[in-house]
Design a protein around this nucleic acid. Structure first.
Lengths: 97, 97
DNA sequence: TGAACATATGAATAAATGTTCATATGTTAA
DNA sequence: TTAACATATGAACATTTATTCATATGTTCA
């Protein structure tokens, strides 16, 4: 796996890491580590504007890091797959070493 | 591991991912996957300005993703540890899935 | 010492990005 | 249908960031 990936893959890869590269998005992801939460719950729990959370959830969604489920008026977000946790764990290992 | 890390850890974590979130830096890291390279070699191989590479190597160095070794006039850079490869592999898995 | 070379660095600029405010969209219940 | 609520979205603004150019620093060799 020593070759540089094709440009479009490389840009996608950079984009994925960019998504993890913001503390607000990391906090949102951590909030979803245990179980799904509605937009309002996340905003409340992080003490941030609903709008901010919504914008960032869109970024997370676009990059397939979270998925959503509608239930009545609320929309519940959850982590999309296990990569998310693993990537964060890897990063944390590096920071804490 | 369900708790949100302390703010300063969180910011560090975001910073690390930020470093991976740029295609130039990813290309530099890939260039170093096999073995060490001098600044000039990297610049040449990527077809970019020496100055650009030097600036980005500094970012990589600051975040402990690469280390350097001086040999005469040249400075050879190499990956600092295995986390680097692993983190990139994880990201790639996510992109390619 | 001085010339040649390799790398680093500072300032400037353009582009990307996170947050806020205001408002739109969509859902529920009366 | 309308009111109330939850979420999404667009525009604006401030901040961050990647690249370039010019130049400084540091090393080798004559």
């Amino acid at each position: 796996m020593n070759n540089i990936p094709a440009p479009e893959v490389l840009f996608e890869l950079a984009d994925v890491f960019k998504v993890f590269g913001d503390s607000t998005r990391l906090r949102i992801l951590y909030t979803l580590f245990d179980d799904e939460q509605s937009v309002g719950e996340i905003a409340e729990s992080l003490g941030m504007e609903q709008s901010t959370i919504s914008h960032q959830l869109k970024v997370l969604r676009t990059n397939k890091l979270v998925r959503l489920r509608r239930e009545g008026k609320q929309i519940y977000y959850s982590l999309d797959d296990d990569h998310v946790k693993k990537i964060i764990e890897m990063g944390l290992d590096h920071v804490l070493e």
